[in-house]
């Protein structure tokens, strides 16, 4: 196993101040502190080559946990090992076997082409010429970097820049990759490309990947396994499909009629949405097929669609209800 986390805690001391002039002045000499527990008793393990999605609303503790795994934050208590290293000891060997990409922060040198950043990283990671050339060649092909390498970074689009960020982070062939919101702000097409790259790269090199994202699409496309964190606690850790079944024991039945029949839908399912000729029903998983058949038989149906509820809905339910409790 590559990553092992047990009973991880992290609390911050936060300076609390009321708004206003007087309060601002008063806080110069008297400060009220409040302890915020960002991560509470989190334990998990990740095997080599896994891609695990780390989900949670803003401020749930995702990034804090990831930073502790990358050795950037010191845990308040609990143990972490990554590839056999204790991250916070910040050993050079540890740093050489992992990499961190933050979607909101760039490591590329702004005014000059990405290639220059790559060369700086080559020196920093002490990569020999041959492996550097090989790796760069491979990444250039996978990420389609050839036209970007000699353009100043500032002139690249967000998507192009993210591709270069990924390359910069992978030049030293890390075995563990932490991706914090890697697709944030990207258009749908680029998101798709980045996802495909991550999947391919993972398959090729068996890189262990932990990923946080707001986009459920990322998670659905990349991860078989998800961990959900809320208020600092891990509330679910397991397969994505199991989560969906557990939390959303229903399917979405989207039916388009030639003319919307004016009936009570209770007999078929719970109405989720209704508009001009289309109705969306929530139907229990087992009966979904039967219900669809009945609708087709009784009404003039133009189109019918059975699908799992969107992941957003599932996750939102997880946050609201908790998983273990239900």
């Amino acid at each position: 196993m590559v990553i092992r986390v047990s009973h991880l805690h992290k609390s911050f001391r936060v300076h609390r101040r009321e708004a206003g002039w007087l309060e601002a002045v008063r806080s110069l000499w008297r400060r009220d502190y409040r302890i915020v527990e960002a991560v509470k008793d989190v334990s998990f393990t990740i095997e080599k080559g896994e891609i695990v999605g780390f989900l949670g609303p803003n401020g749930a503790g995702k990034t804090t946990t990831m930073k502790m795994l990358a050795g950037l934050l010191h845990p308040t208590s609990g143990e972490i090992t990554v590839g056999g290293f204790v991250p916070f000891e910040q050993k050079a060997e540890f740093k050489k076997m992992m990499s961190l990409v933050m979607g909101q922060k760039s490591q590329l040198i702004w005014d000059i082409p990405p290639m220059e950043t790559f060369l700086v990283n080559k020196a920093i990671y002490d990569i020999d010429d041959r492996s550097f050339r090989q790796t760069l060649e491979e990444l250039t092909e996978l990420l389609d970097l050839a036209p970007l390498l000699d353009k100043p970074t500032r002139s690249l689009s967000l998507g192009q820049r993210m591709r270069c960020e990924l390359a910069a982070a992978l030049l030293h062939r890390p075995q563990v990759l932490f991706l914090d919101e890697p697709t944030i702000g990207l258009d749908v097409h680029t998101q798709e490309n980045v996802r495909r790259f991550i999947v391919d790269y993972n398959r090729e090199h068996e890189t262990t990947i932990l990923l946080t994202s707001h986009y459920m699409g990322d998670v659905a496309a990349l991860c078989d396994r998800v961990m959900i964190i809320n208020y600092g606690r891990l509330i679910y850790d397991g397969e994505l499909s199991v989560l969906t079944e557990k939390l959303a024991p229903y399917k979405r039945l989207e039916v388009r009629f030639s003319r919307l029949p004016n009936i009570s839908w209770d007999e078929y399912g719970e109405v989720a949405e209704m508009e001009e000729g289309t109705v969306v029903l929530r139907v229990a998983r087992e009966t979904a097929a039967g219900t669809a058949a009945r609708l087709l038989e009784r009404f003039d149906v133009r189109d019918i669609n059975i699908e799992d509820p969107p992941l957003e809905e599932v996750i939102t339910r997880a946050f609201q209800e908790g998983v273990y409790g239900s």
Partner: peptide
């Protein structure tokens, strides 16, 4: 201020 120090701290230098 921007938190990019994190990148520096993950470098083996």
């Amino acid at each position: 201020r921007r938190g990019t120090l994190d990148y520096i701290l993950t470098k083996p230098v």
